[in-house]
Design a protein around this nucleic acid. Structure first.
Length: 584
RNA sequence: GCGCCCGUAGCUCAGUCGGAUAGAGCAUCGGAUUCCUAAUCCGGAGGCCACAGGUUCGAAUCCUGUCGGGCGCACCA
């Protein structure tokens, strides 16, 4: 309760209860400076328990040397006089259940109208600069499904944090310095020779066979003519590396655009190395005895690699920070390891951020400890340790009609994001990726998603929005304008939807705090469900329809309600990067 | 062998810093459409929250162990 919170309905009542506890301290019913960390004020799961519930009496009774119900009675006494509280009751082991006066909900609806696209925004982040690094797929080919989940999860997380008051940088780390990009360059050169008319035969083992390099070869032929056709590799490798990486990044950016993803910053590993950042990091670490030259032991419990031989390498003392083993920052050929460059890269990011988040695939889980160790070591050394989170996104098992689909860049046979988006649409892809928590594995059956697309939750939410658009269109045609004037005419069943909508700001903060964007998707589903339920009441009872014949004042009020629910759905979908359609 | 993640209804999954009778969708059974989009709604049935201990007013949630599934485990990225 100590965190900064937006001025929402729920935080307002949290403050009221806090004030009551202050009063009880003054009156001696509670010991001074009672620890209230475990006090919660939140809507109960079961709506029949009221609008808000607090466990304050149960949590604080022991410290006050009394029993929960006795303390609860004292709290209730204070709350009973509040005109914004309709009733306060003690229930079960000592919960205090509050029913809020309907005025609260009417005002909340007005607040949605006033804030519009800003409704739900929070100041929680207090402008803290958060760098979210996601995707960072190697620039050796188009994006495939293996990248998709992390891309969507990272992007939604970035939007969420932004909405919750953080200053977010969306960053992509381009691994353009390792051996894989040399392979890319060689593969591109082969396609280049092919474009110039050489018979290249089968793509040799160890090069990338994918067709996507054919246009790269043609482009190179146009750009360079036959200049590099028969020169030794050393003459063209760096040139083709840069050329091909640039083309691959264009490809990746266009794939990302299909998913509605756009990064602010693309950081090049090659540029990082050219700027000697890893050297600087190494020097600092050596000064502090965090890097030393040593020999790693062969892995235990598992047959060591056949070509295993002990080699002395510069090692980072990641064991000092909880890793299982010290980690090499340079290879025996003197080049930086991925990790060696990556630790310098994280320091670079930290220079312009207050917190770092990496979104990685679960296949990198083994490297989390070392990078956390490195960031801890380096940032402690340079003042305050920087908060650093690695969000691991679990694998997606891609199926087609129940059969696993292979994904391998080497074979050149893989389902690309472009294929996926073209077949099922961006909104389905994004929403699907966000309707389960990222740390759980998921199956994604291509055929199933296409066949059952009507059952996909994204349509359920979009349908609610479409219905709202539809009714507003109809009202406009009939000359009825939504209006807040008659909101007092709304009934209990209308309020149920408002209550759900009013939770949006809470959900935003809870989701941002736990850094879990998928909560927004589930919330929207619940909100849509409330709306659909309200809509269907109109089937049985014409008085409960949005447009009530002979009652323009009530119609205007209900249309106002519908319009605001639509606003909240739009705000939520915007966080997920899913479109709020006008009609299905 | 070690590390990380997961285990909740027949299936796919939610579950708010530990809260009240564990929730949804699909599937299944029964209802609602002369009427704002039925791509919707209402109701029934379906659970030893993998298992065993522990922590406390209170555990699906936290701790320990076991079992099952996934990912990773020298200089790759």
């Amino acid at each position: 309760m100590t965190e900064t919170q937006a001025n929402t309905l729920y935080s307002a009542f949290t403050a009221r209860i806090d004030a009551v506890l202050d009063a009880l301290e003054m009156e001696g019913d509670l010991p001074p400076d009672t620890n209230r960390a475990n006090v919660s004020v939140e809507p109960p799961r079961d709506p029949s328990h009221g609008d808000l519930s607090t466990n304050a009496a149960m949590v604080l009774a022991k410290g006050a040397a009394t029993n929960p119900r006795a303390l609860a009675e004292k709290i209730v006494e204070h709350l009973a006089h509040d005109p914004m509280i309709e009733s306060a009751e003690i229930a079960g082991p000592g919960f205090i259940n509050l029913r809020l006066a309907r005025q609260n909900w009417i005002e909340e609806l007005a607040a949605i109208a006033e804030l519009g696209a800003d409704y739900g925004k929070s100041a929680m982040g207090a402008g803290a600069r958060v760098n979210v690094e996601y995707v960072s797929a190697n620039p050796t080919g188009p994006m495939h499904m293996g990248h998709c989940r992390g891309a969507v999860v990272g992007d939604a997380l970035a939007s969420l944090l932004e909405f919750a008051g953080h200053e977010v940088t969306r960053e992509y780390y381009v691994n353009d310095a390792g051996g894989q990009v040399d392979t890319l360059a060689r593969s591109a050169h082969l396609r280049y020779r092919e474009a110039l008319g050489d018979d290249i035969g089968d793509i040799p083992e160890g090069l990338y066979p994918g067709d996507y390099l054919v246009p790269v070869g043609k482009a190179a032929a146009e750009e360079f003519g036959d200049r590099f056709q028969s020169l030794p590799e050393s003459e063209w490798l760096p040139i083709f590396r840069a050329f091909a990486v640039e083309r691959m990044m264009d490809l990746i950016k266009s794939d990302l655009a299909m998913l509605g993803i756009k990064h602010d910053v693309f950081s090049s590993e090659a540029a990082l190395q050219a700027a000697k950042k890893p050297e600087a990091a190494e020097a600092w670490l050596r000064e502090h005895d965090l890097v030393y030259d040593g020999v790693l032991e062969a892995p235990k419990g598992k047959a060591p690699p056949e070509d295993w031989e002990p080699v002395e390498l510069p090692l980072f003392r990641s064991t000092r920070y909880g890793d299982d083993q010290d980690r090499p920052i340079k290879k025996s050929d003197g080049k930086w390891t991925y990790f060696g460059a990556d630790l310098a890269y994280h320091m670079q990011k930290a220079e312009s951020a207050d917190a770092l988040i990496d979104v990685w695939g679960a296949d990198h889980s083994g490297t989390v400890k070392r990078i956390k160790a490195a960031v801890a070591a380096l940032s402690e050394g340079q003042g305050e340790p920087i908060p650093f989170d690695v969000k691991l996104v679990q694998m997606v098992q891609l199926l087609r009609g129940g059969e696993p689909v292979k994904m391998s860049k080497r074979s050149g046979n893989f389902v690309t994001i472009a294929d996926m988006v073209e077949e099922v649409g961006k909104d389905v892809v994004r929403f699907s990726m966000l309707t389960r928590k990222p740390e759980a594995q998921m199956d994604f059956d291509f055929a199933k998603v296409v066949e059952q697309s009507k059952d996909n939750p994204v349509f359920y939410v979009q349908y609610a929005h479409a219905r709202i658009s539809s009714i507003l269109r109809k009202a406009a045609a009939e000359g009825i304008t939504p209006s807040a004037d008659g909101l007092d005419l709304l009934g209990e069943h209308d309020l149920a939807v408002i209550k759900q909508a009013a939770q949006f700001p809470r959900e935003v903060e809870a989701a941002a705090r736990s850094r879990e964007a998928h909560r927004i998707a589930f919330y929207l589903y619940d909100l849509a469900a409330e709306f659909h339920a309200l809509w269907n009441m109109g089937n049985d009872d014409a008085e409960k329809r949005f447009i009530v014949a002979q009652n323009p004042a009530l119609s205007a009020a209900r249309l106002f309600l519908a319009s605001q629910i639509g606003q909240v759905i739009r705000n939520g979908l915007a966080l997920l990067g899913v479109e709020a359609v006008e009609e299905l």
